[in-house]
Design a protein around this nucleic acid. Structure first.
Length: 880
RNA sequence: GGGCAUGUAGUUCAGUGGUAGAACGCUACGUUGACAUCGUAGAGGUUGCAAGUUCGAUCCUUGCCAUGCCCACCA
């Protein structure tokens, strides 16, 4: 027996263990060409599940389960990402608690710590994904720092290096002084802040000076010129003269360059090639000296006066401004709003900093990536993201791929004496190369200390996680992958780079389609953040309402191109849906509705049973259409409406009437159909709410019957719509029931009261239909008997709807006041509609230009309206 | 500065060139047989504003307004 209430806490873990133990997440090999594969966006190994993951993985699991049930050979490839900087920060924080630091430990010991941390906490996120119901093939789980993944990374690096697409360069890069590493352009966030613009005087002699404006006065020591616009008449005569940098009295030249904007600041700008990207370019044009004034940690170095050395640049700024004031070098200061670059991980001010870094020439790779999307080898959904993708790739800059941290793939480059470079897959190979070059044994080599940007290995994920470069079954069978499901926030970081690398390495696009979902926000549309305190923890919701409820909520709200605004109320609502389904199955069990019908569906005779079969097929077809179009919101709505509004509200009630009758044939057939459709419902619902459906499949013995757990039940015999026009008339019957019910409410007759009706004025077809289906009609409408139309009684009323007329007789006195008022209201509405309709039909252009079926439809509408109007008016005249 | 979205019921969102839909919420009422985590009925709309195309626009076009996001730059 089924328990009274659905208890997700007991069931979800139990069901998950069952799936996992039975190895039901592994691809079921088939010999047809249909396969479906997804690689998971690997979560950070040290991360924990947030609402974005919940949405992302619910969508993936929905797709994977949907296609698995369709009989596709299906793989969901899982894994985690080593997340270089993020993980290093976490471990460093841990060390700090123990009064340790990575520098105290040294590289080797530190990395050991990180590995230990990974072993210790790396399964957390995976276990959380399991809570959600994710049906990944965990036996294939990969980690981006695993041996295989690492050798894939090195192989690709060397290939790119040998093609000269990876190169080393000394130039300005974004430098994070807290993390003490270079970062890529993408990792820099511009933030609008309140700052000051300082106007500083550079003197030519004791009296004359030129004023420049800067937001960064601390960089004066790095100045190597002052630029003015050659067309700027104010400064024309100063070009090629020398002015002195305040505080250090160093002379720098005034140069002419179009970069100087006469309308900006004072029109004269100081040029600091080593600390500003634009100035760097100017410096190259004018062959200016690059003076670096910062230590890697952002403190001023010995290129600055002693007084400021060792002081952080932001602190030094204040000191220098004070000193400029004292020396009368400061003309004025202005408060301004300007944007300042911040590191997305450390949240510190990023410095343009002159260092030697490794770069990947992505420009060369981008053209194939653009072409592939243009030729629709890969398509985006929603399509509009294509534009964003194109825009970014068209204007792509070299990717700085080296990081001065320790946790990551160390760059496979070795240096010999004099900095001679040996690129090799491992130390032995490098040694051999070096020895050959230096013509001696055990020549000195040292590996490059840098590691690769985490996104470098991530960009290889679709093929490397499937086993490349080995010719594994999974790689051959499942690449290119079917869909990539991801958020728009990593479109550049990840998606575009995977496209480039995938095409470069495998010559194939890594995925057929890219589904881009939006952000999950709170119910007011606010971004969830710890500081706002509006973070909804998916695990808490799962605990409270079940993973199924959370999943269904997320799917129902996953409308394309829109953020998901999540409120707990919604989750509660869908929890109720689960309860509803649970209760249907109790009904199913109570009435022994469990049978296979697939082979005898053509023998179903009752119209109501034929009707529900057709309604189901229609629903299933619609779900298929929506799923293929990535309309998970529409798909979930479709099944929700069918289950609740069609199956429960009507069919189940109809079935009751039959079950409680004496007609054994009808009972037998209806029980079969009820069980059959319910089993189909469980199948259709399973991708959305896998736990409860699997549990019920099992409990209702569908599993015994179909010889398969629901998760990979694929023996779906095609069932077809039953062709019989009368079946549709169940919907008409439902409308008549509604008419009787609402009439009772208007007249304030208790809904429990029975009435008699007269249907003599209906068409023969409808009368016959009602007669055949009187059993189910009777209970739903609470109609006791039929009466003849010549009967006279005070309590008889006519009801009209769309050309149908029935009489209704109440057993008690009724007050018609309410009804009359209602009818008058209705008459007004109809009159108004008649006017609109008449106006349309009187319009010659409409008649001539509108399509014929529209005009005919309009004529029909008018006919029905006039008909209803006449009948309604006759009621009023009688009752008055 | 450039670009991309989004404005529809109280709220969150669908949808359609031909009489505007759902869920939640709200109101009233409860028919013994799965379910009160329920059922029945109902109220609720100038589809952001304006112009254009059209026989007809909520839908297509343009402009404006509002909101959100992305990219670039800002001495």
């Amino acid at each position: 027996m089924l328990e009274d209430n659905y208890n997700h806490l007991e069931i979800e873990d139990k069901i998950y263990d069952f799936w996992e133990k039975e190895k039901l997440f592994q691809p079921k090999k088939n010999n047809n060409k249909n396969y479906f594969s997804i690689v998971i966006p690997p979560p950070n190994v040290t991360g924990s599940l947030h609402m974005g993951h919940a949405l992302n993985n619910s969508i993936q699991d929905l797709l994977v389960r949907f296609y698995r049930l369709k009989g596709y050979e299906t793989l969901w490839q899982p894994g985690t990402d080593h997340a270089g900087i993020a993980t290093e920060l976490v471990v460093e924080k841990k060390l700090k608690e123990k009064n340790l630091s990575k520098n105290i430990l040294g590289r080797e010991k530190f990395l050991k710590e990180v590995w230990e941390w990974k072993e210790h906490s790396g399964n957390l996120i995976i276990n959380q994904l399991k809570k959600l119901g994710s049906s990944c093939d965990w036996t294939q789980t990969r980690f981006t720092m695993d041996k295989d993944m690492s050798s894939a990374v090195i192989k690709v690096f060397l290939e790119l290096y040998n093609k000269k697409l990876i190169y080393k360069d000394l130039k300005l890069s974004n430098w994070d002084p807290v993390l003490k590493t270079a970062i890529s352009d993408l990792e820099v966030e511009q933030k609008e802040v309140n700052g000051k613009l300082y106007y500083i005087k550079y003197f030519f002699n004791k009296i004359d000076f030129i004023t420049i404006a800067t937001t960064r006065p601390e960089t004066v020591f790095a100045d190597s010129a002052i630029a003015v616009n050659p067309k700027d008449n104010r400064y024309k005569n100063l070009i090629n003269k020398f002015a002195k940098i305040p505080l250090i009295e160093k002379s720098i030249k005034i140069i002419a360059d179009n970069y100087a904007d006469p309308n900006h600041g004072s029109g004269a700008v100081k040029i600091t090639p080593a600390h500003d990207f634009n100035d760097y370019e100017v410096g190259i044009r004018h062959k200016l000296e690059k003076i670096n004034i910062l230590e890697p940690d952002g403190k001023l170095n010995n290129n600055c006066p002693k007084k400021y050395q060792g002081i952080d640049r932001l602190e030094a700024r204040k000191l220098i401004v004070e000193d400029l004031k004292l020396g009368d070098f400061l003309e004025k200061e202005e408060s301004i709003k300007h944007s300042v670059p911040y590191g997305d991980r450390s949240n510190s001010v990023i410095e343009p900093y002159l260092t030697e870094q490794w770069f990947l020439n992505v420009k060369k790779l981008s053209s194939d990536a653009l072409k592939a999307v243009k030729n629709k080898k890969t398509t985006f959904f929603p399509e509009t993201w294509t534009k964003t993708y194109n825009l970014w790739l068209k204007d792509i800059k070299p990717w700085c791929i080296s990081r001065q941290i320790w946790w990551g793939h160390q760059i496979p480059i070795w240096y010999g004496d004099n900095g001679k470079i040996f690129a090799a897959a491992n130390k032995e190979d490098a040694q051999k190369k070096a020895d050959k070059f230096y013509k001696k044994k055990n020549s000195y080599i040292k590996q490059d200390l840098n590691v690769l940007d985490t996104w470098f290995s991530s960009s290889l994920w679709p093929f490397a996680s499937l086993g490349w470069p080995n010719k594994t079954y999974n790689f051959k069978r499942f690449y290119k992958t079917s869909v990539l499901v991801t958020g728009f926030d990593i479109l550049f970081f990840w998606v575009a780079r995977m496209m480039m690398m995938g095409l470069f390495v495998t010559k194939k696009v890594p995925f057929d389609k890219v589904y881009i979902h939006a952000l999950v926000r709170d119910e007011h549309g606010q971004k969830m953040s710890k500081s706002k305190g509006n973070v909804i923890d998916p695990l808490e919701l799962i605990k409270k309402y079940g993973a199924d409820a959370l999943r269904f909520t997320l799917m129902s709200m996953a409308s394309p191109g829109r953020d998901v605004k999540l409120s707990e109320e919604r989750v509660k609502g869908y929890r109720n849906f689960l309860t509803k389904i649970w209760n249907v199955s109790k009904f199913c069990e109570l009435n022994n509705c469990n049978s296979n019908l697939e082979n005898s569906i053509n023998n179903v005779k009752l119209e109501v049973n034929q009707w529900i079969i057709n309604e189901y097929i229609q629903t299933r077809n619609n779900i298929d259409i929506h799923m293929q179009a990535f309309r998970f919101d529409e798909a979930s709505r479709e099944i929700y409406n069918f289950v609740w509004n069609t199956f429960c509200d009507w069919y189940l009630e109809f079935a009751k009437s039959i079950f409680y009758s004496n007609d054994q044939d009808k009972i037998k057939e209806t029980k079969k159909v009820f069980g059959f459709i319910f089993s189909k419902i469980l199948i259709s619902l399973h991708p959305f709410i896998p736990f409860v459906t699997e549990e019920l499949w099992n409990k209702l013995k569908f599993m015994d019957f179909f010889k398969s757990p629901l998760i990979n039940f694929t023996n779906n015999k095609e069932i077809k719509i039953i062709k019989n026009n009368n079946i549709q008339m169940i919907n008409w019957l439902i409308k008549i029931v509604g008419l009787i019910r609402s009439t009772k409410v208007i007249l304030q007759v208790s809904p429990g009261n029975f009435v008699d009706i007269c249907v003599d004025n209906l068409s023969k077809n409808k009368k016959d239909f009602l007669d055949r289906n009187f059993l189910i009609f009777k209970k739903a409408s609470r109609v006791e008997n039929l009466f003849k139309k010549d009967e006279k009684n005070e309590n008889i009323l006519s009801l009209y709807s769309e050309g149908d007329a029935i009489l209704i007789k109440f057993s008690t006195e009724i007050s018609l006041k309410e009804q009359i008022a209602k009818v008058k209201q209705k008459i007004d509405v109809i009159k108004n509609n008649i006017n609109i309709s008449k106006g349309k039909l009187a319009n010659k252009s409409f008649i001539n230009k509108a399509p014929k079926d529209i005009v005919d439809k309009e004529k029909d509408i008018l006919k029905n309206l006039v008909n209803d109007l006449n009948q309604l008016e006759s009621i009023i005249s009688i009752k008055n």
